[in-house]
Design a protein around this nucleic acid. Structure first.
Length: 493
RNA sequence: GGCCCGUUGGAGAAGUGGCUUAACUCACCAGCCUUUCACGCUGGCAUUCAGGGGUUCGAAUCCCCUACGGGUCACCA
């Protein structure tokens, strides 16, 4: 009606663990939608399941989102006038609406025990029916209630689902989806512990917080009719809905938290040395597609381009290879300093370099990391890639052994060793000269010359620039390794 | 099982009745570049849109059925 209604969207995680990539994507869509439309992005914590709540999980979720580059307008740490932003701090707020529903007969006490309900469901299943609450406590009178209470039973409160009604979800992504109320049993809105269930809490929260668009995962689509009933019973206007399809693993299954085939938590990616802008860029492409042919976007561009119309209905499969490619793309574009800072802790934790680096050592490490910046997919890879610079004893792989068994090895290596010893100073330029001199004297050139040297110095048939590598290794180490390679030659011969 | 959603190449996808002999990106393959590797560059990779019926002069695009995949049916969110 009022086309000028303020856009307010929310990401509403339950604080049960780390920020999951699925959650991060939901948050991202909310975030982009809010920014695009000059709206507000709210983070609300749905912590009504006390058993599953994890200490500090809410803070970790927020930290994850912040790291990814999503700033929020309102949350537990930033009041926007619609707080509190934690369900458990909103219990009083829910209370009055529960009372209202109770008074109007739209909700009722249910004294069934969990065992009874389970047995009932079991029976229904046996008869081939779908398990659903039968509504047997719908018509309890005061005496019956009292009798149950005398038995020590604590009731739940159920919502009375209207008979024979259709509930229509107008979804921005999925279009019109219709649900029949007869397929839905009276559901619990207040648990035995007196705390509202998710379905009730979200509805009240979304209304009170004036949420204009509910953007969330598809798993909530079939919850929506229940929420619609609550909106209706309370006489509230409903928000717009947008249900984003699921992210599937490579077996095309919903990613479960236990799934080990994919790294699932934002924090883990951060720890491996992924860049937040790469993850954001990758995540947005899971279910959303831009209009043109470009796929690399900054946050600002995404805000500019994002639209709900281009969000896909079908599920997206998470492809770790593409993420790596994208992260590599951002690493290549990043400043060397940034990548060095990202890599240093990994080298330190692997015990390859000292905890505190002096000026000179830091410069050396920076130069080393720069050698690999082009090919790094994530920072943690640096320890493997650069391992050869730290090893005392080199082991040769099959290919390398093959090279070291070639006939001209002694000539090339001995000549080079001699030329190297004469290097003063020892730097990439003089090394280059030494190589040239070796070529002249030994008569070998090209691959015949460089490969033996490379293998002797690094143990591998491939790697970064040779002159630079030899320099980084240091004269001493290279000489030692030439020695060892010659021995290897002798032993094979 | 009921209800709901989906199905374009190995993956993300564009495509909303003729411009499609189906963009683009990742992966893969080939070639170039490089003393090696990586990066980069060039080219190749769906005669076909899950299958079958229809509607139409014309369908990946509309309708129906089937198959497959998924979600949900909790005092979890």
């Amino acid at each position: 009606m009022s086309g000028h209604k303020e856009i307010r969207v929310r990401y509403a995680p339950s604080p049960t663990g780390h920020l999951h990539i699925g959650g991060a994507r939901s948050a991202l869509f909310n975030y982009l939608f809010a920014r695009k439309n000059q709206g507000k992005f709210i983070i609300r914590i749905e912590d009504t399941d006390q058993k599953r709540n994890v200490e500090q999980a809410a803070e970790k979720q927020l930290a994850g989102l912040k790291w990814l580059g999503m700033e929020w307008d309102e949350s537990i740490d930033k009041d926007g006038g619609y707080g509190p932003y934690r369900s458990m701090d909103r219990l009083d707020l829910y209370r009055q609406y529960i009372d209202q529903l109770l008074e109007e007969g739209k909700a009722y006490y249910c004294y069934c025990t969990e065992e009874e309900l389970e047995a009932e469901r079991e029976e229904q299943r046996k008869r081939g029916e779908m398990p659903r609450y039968t509504g047997k406590c719908r018509t309890l009178d005061d005496e019956e209630k009292k009798a149950f209470e005398l038995q020590g039973r604590t009731p739940t409160i159920r919502f009375r689902v209207p008979d024979n009604r259709q509930y229509v979800v107008r979804d921005l992504i999925r279009g019109t989806v219709t649900f029949d109320s007869d397929g839905i049993g009276d559901f619990v809105i207040v648990k035995k512990d007196g705390i509202p269930t998710y379905n009730f809490a979200v509805t009240v929260d979304d209304h009170l917080m004036k949420i204009s668009h509910v953007i969330r995962g598809e798993e909530h689509l079939s919850n929506t009719p229940r929420q619609l009933m609550i909106y209706e019973a309370l006489g509230w206007e409903t928000p717009e809905f947008a249900h984003v399809s699921l992210i599937l693993n490579q077996d095309r299954q919903k990613m479960s938290k236990r799934d080990e085939s994919i790294i699932q938590f934002v924090e883990q990616y951060r720890d491996l040395g992924y860049l937040p802008e790469a993850i954001m860029n990758f995540l947005v492409l899971l279910g959303w597609s831009p209009e043109g042919e470009e796929e690399i976007f900054s946050k600002e561009e995404l805000i500019q381009l994002f639209s709900m119309e281009r969000v896909s209905k079908s599920p997206a499969v998470f492809d770790p290879d593409k993420l790596k490619w994208m992260n590599n793309h951002y690493i290549k574009k990043a400043s060397p300093e940034r990548i060095v800072d990202l890599c240093i802790p990994h080298l330190q934790n692997a015990g390859l370099i000292e905890q505190d680096l002096d000026e000179q050592r830091k410069a050396w490490v920076s130069r080393l990391v720069s050698l690999y910046q082009e090919q790094l997919e994530y920072a943690a890879q640096i320890t493997e890639l650069a391992a050869l610079f730290f090893k005392e004893e080199l082991d040769y792989d099959e290919e390398a052994k093959g090279v070291l068994a070639e006939e001209h090895i002694p000539v090339v290596l001995n000549t080079f060793r001699q030329k190297l010893e004469e290097c003063d100073p020892y730097d990439p330029e003089t090394i280059k000269q030494a190589l040239k001199a070796t070529q002249k004297e030994s008569g070998y050139k090209g691959k015949q010359l460089f490969m033996p040297v490379r293998v002797a110095a690094t143990g591998q048939t491939h790697g970064p620039d040779l002159n630079e590598s030899l320099f980084m290794l240091g004269k001493e180490k290279v000489l030692q390794r030439l020695e060892k390679a010659l021995k290897e030659y002798d032993s094979v011969r």
